[in-house]
């Protein structure tokens, strides 16, 4: 069994060893080994290809861009996803557009790792999930693993990908343990985590575990939920969702993020447009359109949990069948 954070450092270690053009830098990542202890030992093993930077998100993202179009394959860490607005110009206006507007002279092989997500009592600006901010930016890939195995395989795939990839690590997953194998995983592919005939629940990251827990509770009531882990949110594997919906007829999309403008809305729209005849029901469970609150009493109520999810499914199925 391997911890999620070990899977991260293993992937980085293996890719640094495999390709001398891979470099890794960020705030407190080298000597200190990362504030989430996800990168210890890399500096010692790989020397000056792993280094600490000033607290300058724009500079380190810009430097990653400039180095990626001139021969390196940089991996950087933005300590918290909430800091990504500081790096926005370089990611959105430089990295994301270069391949297309250069008339395909050169792509931008860079990876931005960042710790994201709520539930750690860190308040409004250390808990967000930055996916919606980047969802509407062509040229970016957004990867959101839920298991140690996917964390390792997808981070390796991200580093080998020739395009800019945002790789989000949910803070509440770092201590999760799981089996790890050597099979590669392709970016942009969803995975069925649990089969079921009665409805499809689609999520990512912590939401997948919430959905699996809810599915077990629902099974005790005779409701069999299929759970799909999207794993990559851009590009998003709509085909996998549509295929499951064709079997179950009911689709629930669970997103840790605001109701307005999120990836769950995109899934709902794509499915509504492409699979209308398969839909008996389609709805979303998200967080409210509010900043993330600090107090545990508020934050726990804010996040979509397994009990609430199971209750929502029960009442929805009853109301629809009644």
């Amino acid at each position: 069994m391997v911890e999620f954070r070990e899977a991260i450092v293993t992937a980085l270690d293996e890719e640094l060893a495999a390709n001398e053009n891979v470099v890794f830098f960020g705030e407190d990542v080298a000597e200190p080994g990362g504030v989430f202890k996800a990168t210890p030992g890399l500096r010692k093993k790989h020397g000056d290809r792993v280094f600490d930077t000033p607290i300058s998100e724009l500079a380190l993202t810009g430097a990653a861009f400039g180095s990626a179009v001139t021969g390196l394959r940089p991996v950087i860490e933005i300590m918290f996803g909430d800091f990504m607005p500081l790096a926005m110009d370089s990611l959105v206006n430089q990295s994301a557009k270069y391949w297309f507007i250069s008339n395909e002279q050169q792509s931008v092989p860079l990876v931005v790792r960042s710790a994201i997500g709520a539930g750690s009592r860190l308040g409004a600006v250390h808990s967000q999930t930055p996916v919606p901010w980047f969802l509407g930016v062509p040229g970016l890939k957004i990867v959101c693993p839920s298991t140690p195995n996917d964390a390792r395989a997808l981070l390796k795939a991200a580093i080998r990908d020739d395009n800019p990839v945002l790789f989000f690590e949910h803070k509440r997953l770092y201590s999760l343990k799981g089996e790890v194998d050597d099979d590669p995983v392709e970016l942009g592919t969803a995975r069925v985590m649990r089969e079921g005939a009665d409805l499809t629940i689609v999520s990512a990251m912590v939401g997948v575990h919430v959905a699996l827990e809810a599915a077990e509770a629902l099974a005790r009531d005779g409701i069999e939920a299929e759970v799909i882990d999207l794993r990559t949110l851009r590009p998003l594997d709509h085909a996998a969702v549509a295929a499951s919906l064709a079997r179950t007829g009911h689709l629930l999309v669970v997103e840790e993020g605001p109701r307005t403008g999120g990836w769950s809305a995109t899934v709902a729209a794509e499915i509504a447009e492409g699979s209308l005849h398969d839909i008996d029901d389609l709805w979303r469970l998200t967080t409210p359109d509010l900043p993330i609150p600090f107090s545990p009493a508020l934050e726990d109520a804010f996040l979509p949990g397994a009990e609430r999810l199971a209750a929502a499914v029960r009442s929805r199925l009853v109301s629809r069948s009644g």
């Binding site: 500079a59 400039g66 990626a68 179009v69």
Partner: peptide, 23 residues
């Protein structure tokens, strides 16, 4: 490397390129 439509973008691009060139 490019001409950059955002004020300051050229500074980032050259700084990053210098990282590559040094390596």
């Amino acid at each position: 490397i490019g001409c950059f439509g955002i004020v300051g973008g050229s500074i980032a691009a050259a700084t990053g390129a210098a990282l590559s060139l040094k390596r």
